[in-house]
Design a protein around this nucleic acid. Structure first.
Lengths: 200, 200
DNA sequence: TACTTTCTGAACACTGTGTTCGGTAAAATG
DNA sequence: CATTTTACCGAACACAGTGTTCAGAAAGTA
């Protein structure tokens, strides 16, 4: 089970005072809105407070620092994007079935595509690293075993690094150029490059 | 040999006051030293000033901001690491000669290896992006045409993204794990993954 | 209603940035 | 060597942003 799973529950407690929920949502929305216009590093706490229309001390009673806010917001979002729902129990064993892998990878991209606006605005700056961390962790869990079975004549650690790294890289590139291609197209091209046109 | 020593020649114009040269070197050396202990974002201008043993206003007469200092320092360093000396005129035409490519890529890694200490300490934080930018630009120039001739059945832009991205990725991984392998080893593994064991 | 929790916002201490300026030291010039 | 030019020094300053505190107001809960 993912670390991220536990985090989500912390953030959205059902037994939360309505005021707290309102505040928290207002802060997330405010930051999300501000991130469209400028980088996280250039946004001040005061701006978030003004945009969210809350008191200064209220902000600091919810988040220790601005960075913690980003961290939690990203946790929230990426844990959703890379949730276990993408990875149903039954499909953990791919046993070299490339069709299934293709479907699953494509599914991930569709998920990302659904969060296009949020992810895109977050992808400039510090938050890119959080994205990479989550994505990497997720892929390692989901595909670690399949990667082991791929026969490339290189050490395992290198293979993992290469396969996962190049995939994340491709996805970042896809996002940064505005998600112009269809998910299926990207996955096909990725697998073509990775497997050199070899059949499954 | 320390990077800063090599930089000195490039940075210091011959018509520069000796005092200016001394100051500039002191600042570079100070930052280089501080970067070993902590991330650039956590280093204050005052610390750099103290370490360099110069006056506050002197620092600001040399650099407008702390970020500009980093930018210039990285420019200096990476432009040296990825200098044209790596890319002699005669070798611009690879015409599918994989042996030459192999040699050249290996050469790049040796160069990086020579600057191990400086690069490693810089690779945490903001400066990683500068590294990536430089590296990407350089590789595009040096290998753009060869990549075009690689026959992978994907659009050119995707191919470039994949080949260059996965190489930079691999190098970053190599650096972050402490340059444990020999350059030749890394290049072999990279090319194995990229070309799928196809012969040149 | 009575009680509890959260929100509010002004005031405050603190850290770090970048500027200013009169005085000092060093280098270049002739 | 004397003169002029240039760079360095560093204290003082203005400023921006962070994070805390606290007493009173407002909203939720039972």
């Amino acid at each position: 089970m993912f670390v991220t799973e536990q985090i989500r529950e912390n953030v959205q407690q059902t037994d939360m005072d309505r005021r707290q929920q309102k505040t928290r949502t207002a802060i997330y929305d405010a930051l999300t809105k501000l991130l469209i216009k400028r980088r996280f590093e250039d946004i001040t706490v005061q701006e978030i407070i003004d945009e969210a229309n809350i008191g200064r001390s209220t902000f600091y009673s919810h988040f220790e620092t601005k960075d913690q806010l980003l961290e939690e917001m990203c946790n929230e979002m990426f844990s959703h994007v890379f949730s276990d729902s993408l990875m149903p129990e039954g499909s953990h064993d791919f046993s070299g079935n490339h069709a299934d892998i293709r479907t699953l990878l494509e599914h991930i991209l569709w998920h990302i595509s659904d969060h296009k606006d949020n992810i895109s605005s977050i992808m400039n700056g510090e938050s890119e690293k959080i994205f990479t961390r989550y994505f990497s962790e997720y892929l390692e869990k989901a595909f670690g075993k399949i990667i082991e079975h791929l026969d490339m004549n290189v050490p395992l650690e290198f293979k993992k690094q290469f396969v996962i790294g190049s995939f994340i890289n491709t996805v970042k590139w896809w996002i940064s150029t505005g998600l112009k291609q269809e998910p299926g197209e990207i996955i096909n091209e990725y697998l073509t490059c990775l497997l050199g046109g070899k059949a499954g």
